[in-house]
Amino acid sequence: MVVLGFWEIGTTIDAIHKDGLWIDPFFYGRPSGIASQLSTWIQNGTAQGPLWLQIATTLEEAFLGFLIGVVLGVVFGVALGRVRLLSDVFAPYIKALNAMPRVVLGSIFIITIGYGIWSKVALAVVLVFFVVFFNAFQGVREVDRVLIANARILGASERQLSTHVILPSALSWILASLHTSFGFALVGAVVGEYLGAIHGIGLIIATAQATFNPNGVFAAMFILAVVALTAEVALTWLEGRLIKWRPNTLEVPRI
């Protein structure tokens, strides 16, 4: 609030005196300008069409990328964590791919897949995959050996071992990675749109930047922040639902 007030006053004083001292609204925008930009978008839509369509497009890309990336990451992570041979064969490739600057892939995807949503989904998938993969892999490696031995004694088949012991045990690692990886999915979608798209928040940012409209850039960032926060709340709720077996501070253990 203080920062916002200072920002607003700073840009206003500057506007009055026109001597370029405080904060220049030409580069930094101004809170009231951002607010009015937001309300214009909500009432009249953006240059690319209605605002909700841009948000929905970005969300769709992020969600698809997130889902596909998580599924691939978990499957590969668990498979490589479980099977020694697979990890020996694939680990060097995955490490090499991981070392690549992934945002560069965005340009490649747009050239090969096109301007539609799938090039953004692909970028989001790549960003999400590695985060989830390494967590799932580590989660599988950290499974308590006594629990595995116990399951074997109780008669578990290899598949039952995976579903009853290894996955649930790795789940807390995987879930922890979901917080970070939804952020990555959003980054993937927005960067992809920024590089070239028909709709989306990233495109709004690109357009605002091209027309030297800092209020537009900040307004789009504000929308992104709201989306990311909402997703964070939803994921925390999901995590609580999925691992209710874990001790937490709200629950007093009964003796």
Binding site: V146, L147, A149, N150, A151, L154, G155, A156, S157, Q160, H164, V165, P168, S169, L171, I243, W245, R246
Partner: peptide
């Protein structure tokens, strides 16, 4: 086992039913 070997993510009922379920 010497160490705790019940599955932390299963309730007591599910833990005890694990063997028959596996079989």
């Amino acid at each position: 086992f010497q160490a705790d070997a019940v599955f932390p993510w299963k309730s007591v009922l599910d833990n005890v039913a694990t063997g028959p379920r596996f079989r």
